[in-house]
């Protein structure tokens, strides 16, 4: 089992969610986060006072998936989140030791 963690532009969330639904992904967790990479921040001006805003709003989505599906799913996220501009985000894949469904106690791939 793997965890896919993707940082994407907020306005791409719907596109990515629909693309994932289309390939049968039934669940995910998202959070509103802030950060910066190469895109850096932007400047805001209030009555002449300039403030550099370093941290830009992003969406972090987390999915636990069967290891066999990792490439298909990450490519699906990448394609749907792509604008081609700097700041499109990143996808991280990491191993997951165990998954347990709270309601039934099922473990492993059955709990995904």
């Amino acid at each position: 089992m793997k965890k896919i963690e993707a940082i994407i532009k907020p306005f791409k969330l719907d596109d990515v969610k629909e693309a994932l639904s289309a390939i049968g992904i039934k669940g995910m967790t998202i959070s509103e986060v802030k950060g910066y990479g190469r895109q850096k921040g932007h400047k805001e001006i209030y009555r002449g006072a300039e403030y550099q805003v370093d941290f830009i709003p992003k969406i972090k989505m987390e999915l636990i998936v069967d290891a066999a599906q990792v490439d298909e799913i990450s490519e699906c996220i990448r394609t749907a989140a792509l604008t081609g501009k700097i700041g499109d985000g990143k996808i991280f894949v990491m191993p997951v030791e165990q998954v347990i469904r709270v309601r039934t106690g099922e473990k492993g791939n059955n709990a995904i």
Binding site: E44, Y46, A49, Y51, Q52, V53
Partner: peptide, 8 residues
């Protein structure tokens, strides 16, 4: 003042 953001 002058170092931090006092944005509304």
């Amino acid at each position: 003042h002058g170092k931090r953001s006092f944005a509304p």
